[in-house]
């Protein structure tokens, strides 16, 4: 009950501090590992989950005003990634695992994700890996609903 109250109160007493600072920004990367093998047997390297398109036409942007489920899910995954660093929970891990797995072809490999945070140091944008998940069988993630 206390947890529910703590989730509800910020909605009726919001802080409205949008973009107070531009904090390090998370990206989710994943890789597939052959079953029963160590991480050295990864199939290929780390790949960015849902890379954004190179270009988007104005018409597409305007269509997104009405219909944008994939992008909104991607923003939710950004929230999960931030929560996982600020207050680690199995909920955030499960949400990321299932939603990344949902878009992958079925396979017998294990899925592992990591969180890479981008930030600016001086004039350079730097990447820092802040979290690596425990590999989970893809089939196990894909059999249940997200």
């Amino acid at each position: 009950m206390l947890r529910l109250i703590s989730l509800f109160l910020p909605t009726v007493f919001p802080s409205w501090r949008f973009f107070k600072t531009v904090a390090p920004s998370p990206r989710i990367e994943y890789r597939l590992i052959e079953p029963g093998q160590s991480e050295a047997y990864a199939v290929g390297g780390w790949q960015e989950d849902r890379p954004r398109p190179q270009h988007l036409r104005l018409g597409q942007m305007l269509r997104w005003m009405l219909w944008n489920p994939q992008w909104n899910e991607q923003l939710y995954l950004v929230s999960c990634a931030e929560r996982l660093i600020e207050a680690p929970s199995q909920h955030s891990i499960d949400e990321i695992n299932r939603r990344v797995a949902r878009l992958l072809p079925q396979g017998s490999q294990a899925l592992q994700f990591r969180l890479v945070f981008l930030s600016r140091e001086g004039a350079q944008v730097v990447k820092l890996v802040e979290y690596e998940s425990t590999p989970v069988l893809l089939a196990q993630l894909q059999e249940g609903p997200a």
Binding site: T21, V22, S25, P26, R52, P53, W64, S119, R120
Partner: peptide
């Protein structure tokens, strides 16, 4: 510089071109 960072590396711009 903050708005520059939003476009440069935040998760929000909807395309790489932006």
């Amino acid at each position: 510089s903050a708005l520059r960072d939003v476009f440069r590396f935040s998760a929000y711009p909807v395309s790489e071109a932006l």
